[in-house]
Design a protein around this nucleic acid. Structure first.
Lengths: 260, 260
DNA sequence: TTTATATATTCTGCAATACAGAACAATTGT
DNA sequence: ACAATTGTTCTGTATTGCAGAATATATAAA
């Protein structure tokens, strides 16, 4: 359990890198960064300078502004190769994609949200643009509901009480409704996203257990609503449940037949 | 120009993250890391603890060892979306892939090496496994030769004088031979990798200019030797040169017709 | 061209912080 | 049960990172 105080410069360094993710802007000046993070200008410069020397930022010589460095790309490669969940799940994602031809995602919990860690894209799909590493809220995604459903009660309550952001007119933004939805998810063993994050987009998601009441990740099939409806009629839900159980057994040595 | 001294903790934090890339091992203990980087145990713990709290490392509760955190994935997404080169080049990679059906890469220079920043994979290709973010040497890759050919003379000489690692029996490991090869690359306007990094694998690569003698990146087509030979007979080289010129013009506003 | 303004970068002394060593806790193996 | 190994916390101190000022550089205006 981590309790010691964080090292300031490291926190600051990463908050600079993260700023580029949240700001939506590819380039920032020293001044912008120092103001955004409320740091002294010369302090900011020292941090930026270090990150630049290490290759995690790069300076545009035209306007002197800084952008994220390409060296950051190398980590995603390593994570994909080394992460147990991604390695265990990927072949199954391929299998589902081959059978249904739709985009398949794998997501894990990440402080009150989900982060997509792997995907296999539908060929020619320009419709779904989720990039690996993206974060989404729990209440408006299929994978999020699967994860939320097996969180400890106190964590669930914190989510219910939080601001449930409206994404579409289908998003569940009412605490009581969400609580009821999650109850149904547990009972059914799978979760739907009925155009709750994007109109026209439907997902079917199932949890992958690594132990009793412990969800390692969730996998989902996403696509145009009409196409997913057809897949559902062709037994998509049961297929996903069966695959999730296989992953639990093969990758996490856990027999989750009683959880379903 | 960066001259100020780097902030120690940031350097150390990233050297921990980079250790996971080089070691090839997904999990490391505090002791292992502290020994590998020659840092005091408690110092190492402080660094690891901070990185863990920030989500860039995660602890395996089973054995207490640490692994790279999934939060690192999010950066690759942002870099891909924000990086000018990747955004400019990607559609052309798709175009080449559609026409020839082979794997297409884009790589940029990264301290005496190349780093692959984007790719479009041949469908069903399990043969080529280059992951985005991977680094390779300059002397044994098509993209590397393209970049090397337009480096300032002093940088070129440093490469020629360096240890030219043998990858296959075709790798050019002799300084004089490499110098001659690079001369030919400049003259021809493209570079080949004739099974110099992996037996059975051939690449054709061209430089993309952003200014006179300035290579922004290089793009390459890779595949089984026999298939690339066929593509070459179907005008692959000229097609690549033409596409590289289009990218230079459209993305970097540079007319490189005189360079070819 | 000169002047003014804004921002990037360097310099410097001080104080806070990150560090090393030791102590302690927890886990593993014998 | 004991020893050995390794993870985690504690603490004083020296180092390092920090803030403010000074300087350089770029941009805009006159």
């Amino acid at each position: 359990m981590a309790t010691t105080k964080n090292i300031q410069s490291i926190e600051r360094a990463f908050s600079i890198l993260e700023l580029f993710q949240h700001s939506g802007c590819a380039e920032h000046s020293v001044k912008e960064i120092s103001e955004a993070l409320d740091l002294n200008k010369s302090t900011t410069f020292g941090l930026i300078n270090t990150l630049t020397n290490l290759g995690y930022l790069q300076q545009n010589v035209e306007n002197q502004k800084y952008a994220l460095g390409l060296k950051l790309l190398s980590f995603s490669n390593t994570v994909k190769v080394q992460n147990i969940i991604i390695r265990a799940v990927h072949p199954y994602l391929e299998q589902i994609n081959r059978k249904y031809g739709e985009t398949v995602h794998c997501a894990v919990a990440q402080n009150d949200g989900v982060i997509y860690v792997d995907k296999v894209e539908a060929t020619g799909s320009i419709y779904i643009s989720t990039q690996i590493g993206t974060r989404n809220d729990l209440h408006c995604t299929g994978v999020g509901k699967c994860i939320l459903a097996y969180l400890p009660p106190e964590d669930q309550e914190r989510i219910y009480a939080s601001n449930l952001k409206t994404m579409t007119y289908n998003t569940i933004t009412n605490s009581e409704q969400l609580r009821e939805e999650i109850r149904k998810v547990r009972q059914a063993g799978y979760a739907m996203d009925n155009e709750e994050i994007s109109i026209g987009l439907t997902c079917v998601a199932v949890p992958v257990f690594s132990g009793p009441e412990t969800v390692a990740c969730a996998i989902s099939v996403s696509g145009m609503t009409s196409r997913i409806r057809i897949a559902q009629e062709n037994g998509l839900v049961n297929e996903l449940k069966w695959i999730a159980a296989s992953i639990s057994k093969n990758a996490f040595d856990y027999d989750c037949s009683r959880d379903i």
